[in-house]
Each structure stands twice: as C-alpha cells, then as structure tokens.
Design a protein around this nucleic acid. Structure first.
Lengths: 376, 376
DNA sequence: TTGAAAGCGCTAACAC
DNA sequence: GTGTTAGCGCTTTCAA
C-alpha cells in the first residue's frame, strides 16, 4: 500500500473511490474503465456493460482534477463581468452557465466592480485554475491584462471590439437597429427634443450606443443638443442624477433615451418624485430589456439585447477556439437588438398642447401635487 | 524527454512553465521551490529569495489541478442559490466570493431555479470538481441529495435549519427581531389590520418569517385574519398577484408586510397601478433590504438581513469544518435583522380619518385618477 | 481489443 | 535545511 494512502487512513480521512476500484469490481483493467468512460468505441460491448454496471453500483465518478492534469483540459471557462449586482449580468451568467454546463464545462465568475486591481485578481485566479478561455463582458479591459492572457494563449471573447489576435473573437451588437427604432418611435409620437443619458464613454460599448443614437437622430433630420447629451454611469443612481440635471435645464427635453435600463429606471424614479407623469409629461426609453423593465411603473419601453444570444455567442466562440473546431477563422457573432414598446412612451406634450391646449395645466397640476406631498 | 511533452511540442501546443523550470532557473531542487511557495519556514532565506526572483522573472504560478490532486485540497467551494436573477442572490454571491477569494478559495455557483433536476445536476457538478464544502442558500433541499453530500463527507452549511450531521452547520437568522420591529412600527402608526404575504411555505425560511410575524402580532395583542395571510412565492409577480387579491377583499388591510423585498416591490406596483398612494392609503414593509429597495418609489421600509453577514457566516462555517479548525463543535452563527424605516409606511388611513375626516376623499380621488388613466 | 506502464505538475515523506 | 523520490487519479501510448 502506498505511503499516502496509509497516511490518510491513519488520519481517518475519506478516501474517494477511484478508477482502480471500478476496474477491480468489473474485473477489467483501469485502461478499459477509462476508455469506457470516455466512450472510446473500440471497447467490447460486454466489457463496457460490466464497467457501467460497476460504476453504477459503486456510485463512482471520475476525479476532475486528475483528468485535467493528464489531459491538459480543465473544461473550465472564465466569465468576467463588471458588477454582478447589476441585474443585466445575472441574466447573462444564467444563460452562459446553462449552455456551458450542457457541454460539460464549469464556470469561474469574476466580478470586477470597475476596479482595476480586482480585475487583475480575477484574471490571475482564472489563469491559476487553467481556464480554457475567458469571456470578457466588462465592456472594457486594460492592455497589460490582455497581454497576460494572450501570452498564455488563452482564447478570449469580447463584446464589441476585441483587440486583434489569433485566439480572440468578438460579439458584434447591432446597436444601430434597436436604437434607431427607438428614435423613430419617439419621432413618430411627435418628440423633437430627445435627450440621451449615456454610459461611461470610455467604455466602447457605451460610446457605440451614443453614436448609434446620434446617427439615428441625424438620419431622420433631428438635431441633437449638447445639453441634452449627458454622460451617466449605467447605474440607477447615475440615471437619477442625470435626470435631475435634465429637469433643471431651462428647456428640458420631452423624451429621454437611456444607455441601459438601470439608468432609465433611475430616470423614472426622479420623474415620479418630481411629480411628472410618465409617459404623459415625458417619455423614457431604456436599453437591455432586463427582467425588471417589465415591472417598473410604468412598464418600460426599451431596446432588447438578448442575454441568451450574448451568452450563446460568447460560449460558442470560446469553445470553437478552445476545441479547435473553428472553421471560419474570423467568424463574428451578430447580436440583434429590437425595440420593445411598453408604456413609458407616448405622444409628445407639445402635440397634446396643440390638440387640446391642456398640457400646461396638466403638468403644472402635477407639480403642485408633488409640492404638496413634500410639504406634508 | 517524456512522451507526452514531445507529443505536445509536435502538435505545437503550449507548454506551461512548471516547477522544474523555476528550480532550474533558481538552481535549487523542485522541493525547495515547492516549500518556498507554500511558505514552509525552514527554507533558507537566501534560497527563498532566489526562488521568488525566478518565479517573478519567469512569471510562473503553480498548476492548481496538480496541487489539488496531490494534496487532496481543491480549495473549491460550492454555492447553491435558488435563482441567480433574484437580486438577493447576486448580493450574497458577491459577499461570498469576496471573502472566499481573500482566503484563496474559488467558488462554483449553482442556480437551481427551484427545479429538482437542476439541483441534482448542480450537486453532481460540485461533487465531480471535488468541492471542499457547499453552502446551501436555496432555503430548501431534498433528502436524497443530502445523502449524496453527506455520504461523501462534504461539509455543508444551511440557512435556518440544516439536517443533523457532524459536518453540517447552520446559520440562524433572527427573523423575530426585525419582523417584530416592523409590526410594532406599524402598530405605532395606528395600523390594526396588517396583512402578510409569505413566501412558499414548504420552505423553512419562508415559514419561519410567517411565524415570526404571527408571534409578533400576538405579542402586541393584535389578531391575524386568515384572509390577510397570503402565500406568495418570493417573486415580484407573486407579490403582484397576492396584492391584487388583497385589494379585492371586502375589507382590505391598511398595511402589508412581505416575506421579501421582491414581493413588496410587486405590491408597490399593483398599488400604484390601482391608484393607491403608498404610504398614505396603504403601508408596505419588505424583508431583505436589497439594494433596489432604496430606489423604488416610494423608498421601501424593510427589514434588513445583511448579505455580508450571511456570506461571512456561510464561508467561515464551511472553512472551519473543512480545515478542521472547529473549536466549538456546534457553533452556530446568528444573523441579526433590523427594521430600516424609509417612506413606504405612514399613519393608518383610519387615524387620518379620525383626525381630519379627509380619508374617504383622498382615497376615492385617487381611484378616480386611475380610472381616468386607464380610460385614456 | 486489451492491459501494463509511463507520466501530467505537484507535495510530502525520507534520507542526507 | 535540502534533495531525491514516490505517488495523487487519471489518460494514453505501446506491445501483446
């Protein structure tokens, strides 16, 4: 008996079943057990059956560490997100986990909280566990960390722009379509003054959304006004601050598009608190279509970007590189977007005013209402 | 050169740096490198420095799989949650991850979606990766799965009641304190008819919350009414349904306590839609104090149960068992709760009525308002 | 088709 | 103190 085993038994430690136990039980060699488990087709039908029976009876399963060590394949994937408490990400994680597990992979999640040190730690953790690829869904990453990953030849997948590299893939989100649909929807309702609360503009994805907005506006002949273009930070609080600023303007817009749903929900809160009725006094459009969007009051009109698609795209990209089943070397996934109309958008107040002359009354009544409430 | 390595190099595969490279570079044996890395104090200062320098220069880090295989310690912990898209859980995961990583552990997350098959899959995944413990935060688990874990001698930690077992720990949430504070707060505001929307009662934790409510009520001499005790499911949608039911009663309550915040947020939505002004017409109290609670409209009065405490308790319990540093064999963590008063609670309408006789007017005005809106 | 045996990268005995 | 060496549980040659 080996030294290690004897030691363990002395210390009364658990000893896991191993492949030898199965081999003995099935009266075959460990090689045959291994081949059976790995479904190598050359194994004799009879022996295979004996092996499966033994596995069943002993309730055996292989030790992943050992398999990984010898085969060099950990079947571990890293998933890097900005902030796990932002509802967008759990929905993404759920989708990613589902598909990864279905393919026998396990996931290591890293939440960076927009902190560089934390991001470095996350990447180090993933490297140490020998992940076979990492999906970088943080909408931004620093150069040295990229080097670290690419120098170890770890496949990567990015949202929007990834840096060039043989093992790098990118998911291309079609921001333009959904955002343009939103702008057209608003214009069709008579809105001419539309604000945009962006995300942090140093993030490529946030920048791309803003650009898509500006282009869409231009396309239908509307002008943007710099004071209506506010940089937020993709959080609820950021949305609140930006909206407060918008309301303090001498000429506030009649509609706001937001770079993500959390920002829009923040806008909704401030608007409600200020006594504005959404959508009568102001229309609001979000982006992402998180689960919550349907349940805020009023239900949020928003641009849907499917987390399922994103998750699947990320996983498949990684897998195709890791398992070298890449046929079209530079294959990029396109993630579609689509406007979902709910109840936070309506005709522009100006239009109502023209129609019935009641706009000024309604808005001021509401304002009075809110003041009353505050004075209570 | 070994067969494996030669093969890899032929296939042009990446070869990781290993402990031998470091040993060669530092001109010491691999044992010394290993000792240095593991901070065994008997290593000579000089050699240790050479080793660290070599590690630095080569940018080496050890292979976790190999370490785990030989030491029997994977430093992996399982974290089982009900539903990752329920905002309560990401906050818990964040805390758990933080403390686990700080101690050199990695986490495997499993989201069961209240589905038995999925739960079984999650546990199997964790077992195969040889987790050193699992935190079961699903507020409920089935017997056969427990057997599977305990027969493999995996340490476990539960919220509320865990089954007995030498490797099992439990976190005890002091539901009573916070919920009683809520009930007293409501009673102090003149509420006499208080409803409770529970979670799924087959879950011990949901049951415990309801019991705490009932006991608190009794303690201050209030009676519960069965029609005001509704079983929900801890989701926003469930809260909406339950609240609709409450509003359809011939004698609706003047206040609602909810078993969690998502339920309370659902209640808020339905009340807003029905034209009720919260808190003037109805008071609402939640449970958990998720981040969102502060940002709904109106900001939610709720009972805080700290996710940080829960996460720390779960991790430390697991670690103390896994690392056998358990001093007090049956040590249980107590998780405190505390009422956080925000703006969703106010004096009972009856009280206002008595004071100024304006209640009937205000509530009916609001109802009219909502009908108008719906007819728009 | 099967089994014996060589290692995957590391830790920990044991000898020096 | 330090180095040599025997495995951890598995996959994958290679020979039979």
């Amino acid at each position: 008996m080996s030294t290690n085993k004897r030691l363990r038994q002395n210390r009364n430690e658990k000893r896991h079943l191993d492949i030898r136990d199965v081999a003995r039980h099935a009266r075959v060699s460990i090689a045959t057990v291994s081949r059976t488990i790995n479904r190598i087709p050359t194994v004799d039908q009879h022996l295979a059956e004996r092996v499966w029976k033994a596995i069943e009876e002993l309730n055996y399963f292989p030790n992943t560490q050992a398999r990984a060590l010898v085969s060099g394949r950990t079947r571990l994937l890293g998933l890097l997100v900005s902030e796990i408490t932002n509802p967008f990400f759990p929905e993404l994680i759920e989708g990613f986990e589902e598909i990864a597990v279905a393919h026998g992979y396990e996931i290591l999640i890293g939440s960076t909280s927009y902190d560089l040190t934390r991001m470095a730690t996350c990447i180090r953790r993933m490297l140490e566990r020998q992940v076979e690829g990492v999906a970088i869904m943080t909408f931004g990453i620093e150069q040295p960390l990229l080097e670290e990953l690419s120098s170890r030849e770890i496949p990567m997948v990015f949202v929007d722009a990834g840096p060039p590299g043989p093992l790098v893939r990118a998911l291309t989100v079609d921001y333009r379509k959904g955002i343009s649909e939103g702008v057209v929807h608003l214009a069709g309702l008579g809105h001419r003054s539309i604000a945009f609360i962006s995300g942090p503009l140093r993030q490529g994805s946030a920048h791309a959304r803003k650009t898509a907005f500006l282009e869409s506006l231009q396309e239908i002949g509307l002008k943007s006004r710099s004071e209506w273009l506010i940089e937020g930070n993709h959080t609820l609080e950021g949305g609140m601050r930006a909206t407060e600023h918008l309301l303090s303007l001498s000429e506030p817009p009649t509609a706001v598009m937001c770079s993500n749903d959390m920002t829009a929900i923040g806008a909704l809160r401030v608007l409600a608190r200020a006594g504005f009725n959404v959508p009568r006094d102001m229309s609001v459009i979000g982006f992402d279509d998180i689960h919550l969007a349907e349940f805020v009051y009023p239900p949020l009109t928003t641009v849907r970007m499917s987390r399922k698609d994103l998750a699947r795209g990320a996983f498949e990209s990684l897998r195709s590189v890791a398992e070298k089943l890449d046929t079209s070397q530079q294959r990029n996934w396109i993630i579609p977007t689509q406007l979902i109309i709910r109840e936070s958008t309506a005709e522009a107040p100006e239009l109502l005013l023209k129609k019935s002359g009641q706009r000024r009354t309604s808005r001021s009544t509401l304002k009075r209402g809110s003041r009353l409430r505050e004075a209570k």
